[in-house]
């Protein structure tokens, strides 16, 4: 029997029931939570027996040019179900999201990865550091504007650096 993928509405209903006022909006596949209520909602979804999302299987960030989304995939072994939660982070200069490490130890390294590559600072993480790149690396590589970021990174090797700046890619937005 395949894993049941919860729709956004189902997750939203469960989250709203467990932590009132935690849901921002829903789409077909995902439920957008309010950042300030995220840890509380995830903790409730984990410990409530009829949701039982005990396993944080995936955590990643996505850059949508004007805002970031942090995507959480939670699953349950006993009930064989998976759901997708998201939060939005709108401040690009000081991107801050709450850390779920107090709830899921497995988020430790995945949050470090998202911080390293996207520059989303997870508030409350015990040891947030750049996990792949070194401290002081200029810019955040997975951001879409990485190559026009301060720090002057150019494609190609340093000794053959192009003089012409790379044209800005056309802004592509996902609704």
């Amino acid at each position: 029997m395949p894993t049941r993928e919860w729709t956004g509405e189902e997750v939203a209903a469960a989250a709203e029931r467990l932590v009132p006022g935690s849901v921002a909006r829903t789409t077909a596949g995902a439920c957008y939570l309010k950042a300030e209520k995220l840890v509380e909602a995830i903790e409730a979804l984990r410990s409530s027996p009829d949701t039982d999302f005990v396993h944080l299987t995936n955590l990643c960030g996505v850059d949508y040019w004007d805002h970031f989304e942090v995507v959480y995939h939670l699953q349950s072994f006993v009930r064989n179900q998976i759901c997708c939660l998201k939060i939005e982070v709108w401040d690009r200069e000081k991107a801050v999201a709450p850390s779920v490490v107090p709830v899921f130890h497995g988020a430790w390294m995945q949050e470090c990865e998202a911080y390293d590559l996207l520059g989303i600072r997870f508030e409350g993480h015990p040891n947030l550091h750049r996990i792949f790149l070194w401290e002081g690396y200029p810019g955040w590589p997975l951001r879409k504007d990485f190559l026009s970021m301060p720090g002057g990174l150019q494609p190609g090797l340093n000794e053959f650096a192009g003089t012409a700046r790379r044209p800005e890619p056309a802004t592509r937005l996902v609704q």
Partner: peptide, 14 residues
């Protein structure tokens, strides 16, 4: 637009 790998070796090291 975004390509993310949930790498088991990486997360198993947690």
């Amino acid at each position: 637009y975004r390509f993310h790998i949930r790498a088991p070796s990486f997360i198993n090291l947690s």
